[in-house]
């Protein structure tokens, strides 16, 4: 009896051990699949174009990184085809400006809206909340035709305003803030501030905002990354595609469609440069981001 019991316990344990090894192997394989394309591009950015053409894939970095950076910034190659297509500093500057501005606006005004819908009682409170929840799913592509024609009408094409200002009205961020405030904002604080003679806006700015910091930070990261990665809207609105105005994804797209750029090392380098900022941000803040994905579940 005791013997058979021990036996089954043993087989059970080996079964579990085998399963966990299989699962670990699958996970490691998937990790490789996730990282390998990025790694290959990274390595290719340091290799000479001829080396890439002749030898194909390599897992060891080459020594041409400096040379590739030089060619990317060389205005004499192909009559300036390289420098006219891609300028890393302009790309960083433009994308950083747009992304920071829209992240800040999105978080601040969504917080304001959610605060208004949580703290105050007014007639249209319920309909307003329902409305914000209902419109969360409307995709931008659906309104883009009317949006573009409208912007062309009021001469706002080639302008950053229509890229940044819409961030003020971000339904999914409001939805997230609403949930956060309902679960963890003590309304008594507002009451206490009022008794102490604090104005409503000051209460929001100086007393409530510090409490919302964690929620704001997560949403700000997501808003920043979403804006940095956006290719559709900028390429739609910045119709003339001037180099000084292009965002980073637009520069990448321009490199891809320019067949004068024949240097494969440079092509790889441009892509690497475009993903470095977001990857660095992600690796520094991955803890918050991974947690935040499920929190901001209704992102679409």
């Amino acid at each position: 009896m005791a013997d058979s019991y021990n036996h089954s316990d043993k087989t059970y344990r080996t079964k579990i051990a085998i399963h966990s090894v299989i699962r670990l192997i699958v996970c490691i394989l998937l990790t490789i699949i996730c990282l390998l394309p990025i790694y290959i591009i990274l390595v290719n950015a340091t290799r000479d174009s001829n080396d890439i053409i002749v030898n194909g894939v390599s897992l060891l970095p080459g020594g041409s990184l400096i040379k590739n950076i030089g060619s990317l910034n060389d205005p004499t190659i192909q009559n300036g085809a390289y420098t006219d297509t891609f300028n890393v500093w302009l790309g960083y500057r433009n994308s950083l400006f747009i992304s920071l501005a829209s992240a800040a606006l999105s978080v601040f005004f969504s917080g304001l809206t959610a605060y208004g819908l949580t703290v105050y009682d007014f007639k249209l409170k319920k309909p307003a909340t329902t409305f914000i929840l209902a419109i969360m799913m409307i995709p931008t592509q659906v309104v883009s035709t009317g949006f573009l024609q409208f912007m062309a009408q009021i001469k706002w094409l080639d302008n950053y305003a229509p890229l940044i200002l819409p961030a003020i009205a971000a339904p999914s961020v409001v939805f997230f803030m609403l949930q956060y405030m309902r679960s963890s904002f003590p309304l008594d604080i507002v009451e206490a501030a009022r008794i102490d003679g604090c104005g409503e806006f000051r209460t929001f700015l100086q007393i409530s905002l510090p409490i919302f910091k964690p929620a704001f930070a997560v949403q700000a990261i997501f808003a920043f990354v979403a804006s940095w990665n956006n290719y559709y809207t900028p390429s739609m609105l910045l119709v003339s595609g001037k180099l000084e105005q292009r965002t980073m994804p637009m520069m990448v797209a321009a490199i891809l469609s320019n067949d004068k750029i024949t240097d494969y090392g440079v092509r790889n380098l441009a892509i690497v440069l475009s993903i470095i900022p977001v990857v660095v941000i992600y690796l520094c803040l991955s803890k918050f981001i991974v947690k935040g994905v499920a929190l901001g579940a209704v992102k679409g």
Binding site: F109, S110, L112, T113, Y115, G116, L117, V119, Y120, D121, F122, L124, K125, A128, I132, I135, I138, V142, V143, S144, T145, G146, F147, Q149, F150, P162, L165, P166, I168, A169, P171, V174, E200, F204
Partner: peptide, 25 residues
């Protein structure tokens, strides 16, 4: 009234950049 003031920016911007473009589409 503060409730309306706080949510006003959202709805004004939304009307300008989403509702009208939708109607326009």
């Amino acid at each position: 009234k503060y409730g309306y003031i706080f949510i006003a920016p959202f709805f004004i911007v939304y009307a300008f950049f989403m509702v009208y473009p939708l109607i326009n589409t």
